[in-house]
């Protein structure tokens, strides 16, 4: 295990880099996914069409294709960003489709009568969503949304493999290919690094689930 303990600082900075990708990915995909979900349940047909197309297109493309599209496609039409920005953006776009569907399934779990009552007292669409539907949908949204977010944390390794640099995955490549360490201890260290991100996330998820369950 010298490979790990000799390079703890490298692992630590890789961990922070990966954590950064995860957190940006989470915030971005939650915001974008919520917006797309609002489009999908909107009374305006063109917004619904946009939301449905987005989900259909993005959800059915492999993450690597989305990544390559961003990193190699966009520069050809003059959009240049760092790999880090492209990587996070691809992760956000890809995950937003799944976030949207988790939220939408929660919205569908709230009886239609609640939204009708909200509209019938004169609340606008966004008011009935924020005041009446979402607070009740939240309970059913938490479990599937948690799975989506944890899957996204793990997908951040794909973003790393594609060359963001400095993250846990590149630590592995650096130590094994460039510095010649054995693979097994290094990849074990990388796995521990990822678990340090996903296990607390899973624990937080379980806590939130209990909390919203009691609130009813």
């Amino acid at each position: 295990m010298d490979a790990v303990f000799d390079n703890l600082d490298l692992f630590w900075s890789g961990f922070l880099r990966s954590l950064g990708i995860c957190l940006w990915g989470m915030v971005g995909s939650l915001v974008l996914g919520t917006f797309i979900a609002a489009c999908r349940v909107s009374p305006i047909p063109s917004l619904r069409w946009f939301g449905t197309s987005w989900v259909t297109l993005v959800r059915n493309c492999p993450l690597t294709v989305v990544l390559f599209f961003m990193a190699f496609g966009l520069p050809e039409i003059g959009i240049n960003q760092s790999y880090y920005v492209f990587g996070v953006a691809a992760l956000v776009i890809y995950t937003s489709a799944f976030v949207c569907e988790a939220i939408r399934s929660g919205i569908n779990s709230v009886s239609a009568g609640q939204a009708e009552a909200a509209r019938s007292i004169g609340l606008t669409f966004s008011q009935s969503l924020s005041q009446v539907v979402m607070p009740q949908a939240f309970r059913s949204i938490v479990p599937p949304l948690g799975s989506v977010i944890i899957a996204m944390f793990k997908n951040s390794a794909v973003v790393g493999a594609f060359g963001v640099g400095g993250d846990l995955w590149s630590v592995y490549k650096n130590l094994t290919s460039a510095q010649g360490y054995d693979g097994l201890p290094v990849i074990t260290g990388v796995a521990v690094g990822y678990l340090c991100i996903t296990l607390p996330a899973a624990a937080f998820l379980a806590y939130t689930e209990r909390k919203v369950a009691i609130a009813r």
């Binding site: 609640q114 009708e116 009552a117 509209r119 019938s120 007292i121 004169g122 009446v132 009740q136 009813r216």
Partner: peptide, 19 residues
């Protein structure tokens, strides 16, 4: 929305906001 505010509606299944 403004119009609906002028029209009160009472449903068969009450539809009170459960939360």
């Amino acid at each position: 929305a403004a119009l609906r505010a002028e029209v009160g509606m009472v449903f068969q299944s009450f539809n009170l906001f459960a939360h």
